[in-house]
Amino acid sequence: MESKLTNEQVLEALRAQFATAIGEEEQTIDNYLTVYINSKNVHEIVDWLYKHPEFKIQFLTNITGVHYPENEKGKELMVVYHLHSLQNNFRIRLKAFLPIENPVIDSIVDIYSAANWIERETYDFYGIIFNNHPNLKRILNQDSMDYFPLRKEYHVEDATRQDKDDRFFGR
């Protein structure tokens, strides 16, 4: 079903409202709008989209992290927000870069309660710190784990396994 909103409409409104906080945008082949935003403005942008009388982007599909070890300094980590307006059948993807030395971003738990566990998961796997999160601790991995396993400097394999030839398993 066609969306009642167009990508251009939302993008224009975002640029008018937030100006410099909105970076480049791109569209995937299925017409899915992706907007690169300043990590400092995540909370206000998500909040604004939520409260917008026409857009009504009020459903959080997912939050996840990405690690790009080869990116320029200050842009090694990324947080991706997938938002959905159920009333307008419109989806938008927000991406924010973070430096790996200090990956801090504002939590959106006060807007979406569903963000609670998803942000914990993103912290668990990428070490991204969500400011003002009520309970930011590991959720899926064992509490004793002392690293963030989906960062690319760590091997995915279990380091203690001895029955495999290391050369073939990236160790």
């Binding site: 899926l140 396993p149 995915v156 394999e157 279990d158 203690t160």
Partner: peptide, 13 residues
């Protein structure tokens, strides 16, 4: 017995 195909950080080997 050995972790099987799940040679990964989250599975007991």
């Amino acid at each position: 017995s050995s972790g099987g195909i799940f040679d990964t950080y989250s599975v007991l080997q």
